[in-house]
Design a protein around this nucleic acid. Structure first.
Lengths: 118, 118
DNA sequence: TTGACAGTTGAATATTTACTCAACTATAAT
DNA sequence: ATTATAGTTGAGTAAATATTCAACTGTCAA
């Protein structure tokens, strides 16, 4: 047992393991990048939107109807998905059609969802 | 354009698309199961714990030291990971050693993290 | 050119979630 | 037995996030 050098409310029990694992840790920014993606698809509304768009491109009103939510709420979530580069859109008159950003995103999502079913 | 039957603040624009996508939607419980997993790994602290455990089994104190957090905070997050069946533990005297639940979980995580790097 | 509607936005509110704090259990050592 | 430490737990707090609300832009149709 060694005294700990950093803030923590207890002693270090296995300093060898600790030192070893420390060298394997990534930097903060890498962990942030990883969690950002999972955080985005870790929300029921957003997953339902992605699932819907996987089946067909849709406009905001259709999505609002599908999920029984307001246009505003859907629009806010679509913004999150846009910022995470998971969806793209095209405008046609007053209507904005959303779809999955690209095949890579589609595969990511399908892959992720398939894992769950096991 | 058709009148909408459910709550929503706008009209249905493409009823054909809507009907089609509706049939493809999963039930609430399935979406909940999917998002539960991603929500769990969508947190920086938990991903760091999982990453550490991927390298070596560790006790609560070691994890607290590694992440410069209190035992309590780590313990609370380990509880989340236990509930999501992502980690398992063994007790030895006063010490509790945590490790990844099984190979399937390990693969899930490694897979997920690799996707990000692309 | 006026009205209606699709969609967006920012601020306010509501809800969820991470962490702190203090009390507790269990095990080990003296 | 008593003391010290590893770990857990529940309640409370703080921070993050989802949704609501109201105001706004842009486009279409009369």
């Amino acid at each position: 047992m060694t005294k700990n050098e950093f803030y923590c409310d207890c002693t270090i029990i296995h300093s060898d393991v600790l030192e070893c694992v420390k060298t394997k840790m990534l930097d903060k920014s890498e962990f942030d990048g990883i969690t950002k993606f999972f955080k985005t698809i870790g929300d029921s509304t957003r997953v339902q939107i992605l699932w819907a768009l996987y089946n067909h491109e849709m406009c905001v009103c259709d999505l609002a109807n599908l999920l029984s939510m307001t246009k505003s709420a859907i629009s806010h979530q679509l913004r999150e998905l846009r910022l995470a580069n998971l969806v793209k859109f095209r405008k046609s008159g007053k209507t904005v059609y959303y779809s999955l950003a690209d095949d890579h995103v589609t595969n990511l999502i399908i892959n992720a969802l398939n894992h769950i079913k096991e």
